[in-house]
Simulated assay, not measured.
Amino acid sequence: MIVLRNVSKIFNARSGPVTAVDNVNLQVEQGQIYGIIGYSGAGKSTLIRLLNGLEKPTSGSVVVAGQDIAQASGEALRQARLKISMVFQHFNLLWSRTVSENIAFSLQIAGAPKAAIQRRVQELIELVGLNGKEQAYPSQLSGGQKQRVGIARALANSPDVLLCDEATSALDPQTTDAILDLLLDINRQLKLTIVLITHEMHVVRKICHRVAVMEAGRIVEEGEVLSVFTHPQQPITRQFVKQTTEYSSADTPFNADLVDAAAGAVLKLTFVGQSTRQPIVGELTLKYALPFNILHGKMTQTANGTFGELWLQVPASGSQLENILADLHAHAISTEVVKNV
């Protein structure tokens, strides 16, 4: 559906050339929800503007639904953009128009018949859950309702690709979850390809199938969300993953440095998928006749499945500890010895 090959974007600033996107290669399959995460200045917003043709790459190709957006111009680019819609962080609604009029706007520009516009607007109002708000103005809506209007408007022309640029950053956590549930529902119902730009790993964890991590214009890590969460390779990825795996500020975070190493080795176990349902600790306790002390644990749900982390302390060392680690490995559980006796 979307293929980027060796894409770079260089801006000419007064201080000299600035490379916003640096030799990016990326592939998004049809029907996927694909997350692109990075901090401010990473290049992710420039990348999304390359996807819809608002920016032309300095080099490389940007192919969306078989059309090279980088090479298209005039009528070809206009037609291509009709199939690539955008949802914005700050809604970008027309404040003098009602909900229905905002949703109808792009259809009116496209020259659709009035009766067809009315049918489509009503379909979309029902899809995004805005029944009863048809004649309301943006100033009368909550942030979540405004974003629902933005999503409905983006879907008006039945696009193949929906681009979301920090679509939940201006919303509170509860509203963010509701909007993410809506996007997930739209993806399932319409089989719509969604590319989601964000700096929040919670957004990626909740609905994305794959994720690319950007830093200084480059993609430094890419893969299935569950794999990236359980085995982050880059320091910046580990930093993002930490956002969603730590306890809230109201809880006391686990600190392995405070555990008395004399009481035994401290192990960090990472469970994925079916292994989260296996009674591994009980089996090890019976097999080795050792007290496995559970220090800390947490389960995390992603769009690809569940993973859990568990810290244990066990009075074992040498070959006995090696045997325990081998048993855990045989159950497809990743294990790290955080502290040894």
Rank of each mutant, 00 (worst) to 15 (best):
R5S: 15
N12Q: 13
P17T: 02
A20L: 06
V28E: 00
V28Q: 00
I33Q: 00
I36L: 13
G38L: 06
Y39M: 11
S40D: 09
S45Q: 06
T46Q: 07
T58F: 02
Q67V: 15
Q71F: 10
A76F: 02
L77D: 01
A80E: 07
K83H: 13
S85F: 04
M86Q: 09
V87P: 07
V87C: 04
F88V: 01
L93Q: 05
L94P: 05
R97N: 04
F105M: 12
Q108M: 10
Q108P: 06
I109L: 15
A116F: 03
A116M: 11
Q118L: 12
Q118A: 15
R119M: 11
V121I: 10
V121P: 06
L124K: 07
V128M: 08
V128K: 04
L130Q: 06
L130C: 08
L130S: 07
S139K: 11
Q145V: 06
K146S: 06
V149L: 07
R153W: 00
P159R: 03
V161P: 00
V161A: 02
Q174Y: 06
T176D: 08
D177Q: 14
L182H: 09
D185N: 15
L190V: 08
I197P: 01
E200S: 13
M201I: 12
H202E: 14
R205T: 13
K206A: 12
I207E: 07
C208F: 09
C208V: 11
C208A: 15
H209Y: 08
V213W: 02
R218L: 02
V220M: 11
E221H: 09
E224I: 10
F229K: 03
P235F: 12
P235Y: 11
A250E: 15
L258F: 02
A265C: 10
K268Y: 09
L269G: 00
L269M: 11
R277W: 04
P279F: 05
P279N: 03
P279I: 05
L286E: 13
P291M: 13
P291C: 12
K298W: 04
T300F: 11
N304E: 14
V314R: 00
P315W: 03
Q320I: 15
L325I: 14
A326P: 01
S334R: 07
T335R: 01
E336S: 11
